[in-house]
Simulated scan of single mutants.
Amino acid sequence: MSAAVRRLADGLSGEDREHVAAMLLALRSEGIAENRILAAFEATPRTLFVASGDRDRAYDAFPIAIECGQTLPPPAVQARIIQAAAIEPHHKVLEVGTGSGFAAAVMARLAERVTSVERYRTLAELAEERMASLRLGNVTIAQHDGLEGYARFAPYDRIVVQGAVGQLPLALAAQLKPEGILVAPIGRAGAEQVLTRFVAREKHIDATPLGAIRMIALSPGRAAAL
């Protein structure tokens, strides 16, 4: 772990604290009201999850490019998804699409255990380094085809899909506990999707639309490179 990464993980500068305060006000204005979620965002330095040249923009309200052609979504988008999942302290969570690892780090402060799967090896390795720097020992990062879920630790109380999918991935739904919740942006890439909450009932799955959202598409498979 580099000294620069350790410094970012250990504390925020005065300027960063101003950015965090502005982010929290913006999240509240977007309807993110749960104090546990706001506290988890406050405690997770976004500057650790972007390239050094983008650190001055880490808290801005637009996507930031990261490795492997992916993006770090804006704080409000990630907060909406996490809030929709209704994560409790005793929950076991599966995240599909680790990306930078920021959302996994936030959810690790809300749940008992987070398993996050990522198709790109580079992103998975960077996320593991960031979890170690933040001393988040309750997160497992795995390179895997996220649309297959991660059967090793199934079933899950919550599944959070960090990318647009055309419909509910049945392989993921099968890994939910009874009354478990899956949250995913449903729709095609390049257009607005509908953030949807699915609840696993005894003989069916309830779906509740939660409003428009825009995320990049979730790709199937495990990347052969990167």
Rank of each mutant, 00 (worst) to 15 (best):
V77E: 09
A85M: 07
P73F: 03
P89N: 06
I81T: 14
V93D: 02
P45W: 10
V93T: 10
I64L: 15
E88C: 13
L72W: 00
E42Y: 04
V96C: 11
V96P: 10
F41K: 09
F62A: 13
D54N: 13
G69L: 06
A105S: 11
A61M: 11
E42C: 03
G101P: 05
A39R: 14
V77N: 08
R55Q: 15
V106N: 07
P45V: 00
P74Q: 11
F49D: 00
D56K: 14
I81W: 07
D60N: 08
D56S: 15
A51F: 07
G99F: 03
R46S: 01
G97Q: 05
T98S: 12
A86V: 12
I82T: 15
A105Q: 03
S52F: 15
A76M: 06
Q83M: 07
R80V: 06
E42R: 14
L94T: 08
G101R: 06
D56P: 01
G97R: 03
R55W: 10
T47Q: 08
A40V: 01
A85W: 03
C68M: 14
F102M: 05
P75N: 01
D56L: 14
S52H: 14
P75E: 01
A85V: 08
H91W: 09
K92V: 11
Q83V: 08
V50P: 00
P75A: 06
S100D: 04
A79E: 07
F41Y: 13
R55H: 02
D56A: 15
A103M: 09
A84R: 06
T44R: 07
R55C: 07
I64P: 00
Q70K: 11
G69V: 09
S52W: 14
G101K: 05
I66Q: 02
C68I: 01
A104G: 13
I82E: 10
A104D: 10
D60F: 07
A84H: 08
D56I: 14
I81D: 05
A61E: 15
E67M: 09
A39D: 14
A104N: 12
P75D: 04
V50R: 05
G97T: 00
H90A: 15
C68K: 13
V50D: 03
R80S: 14
G101Q: 02
D56H: 15
G69Y: 11
S100I: 04
V77S: 11
A43Y: 05
H90P: 00
G69P: 06
A65N: 06
F41H: 07
E95T: 09
T71W: 06
V106F: 07
P89D: 06
R57Q: 15
Q83N: 12
R57E: 15
R46E: 03
L94K: 03
A85L: 11
A103W: 00
Y59D: 00
A85G: 14
G69T: 07
I82A: 13
G53W: 13
E88H: 12
R55G: 00
A51M: 12
I87D: 02
R55K: 13
T71C: 06
F102P: 02
T98E: 01
A86Q: 14
P89A: 05
R55T: 03
F41N: 08
E42I: 01
F62G: 12
P74I: 00
E88P: 01
T71A: 07
P63T: 10
H91T: 02
P89E: 05
I64D: 08
H91S: 05
Q78F: 02
L48F: 00
E42L: 06
T98R: 00
I81K: 04
L48E: 03
L72S: 09
T47K: 10
L94P: 11
Q78W: 01
H91K: 09
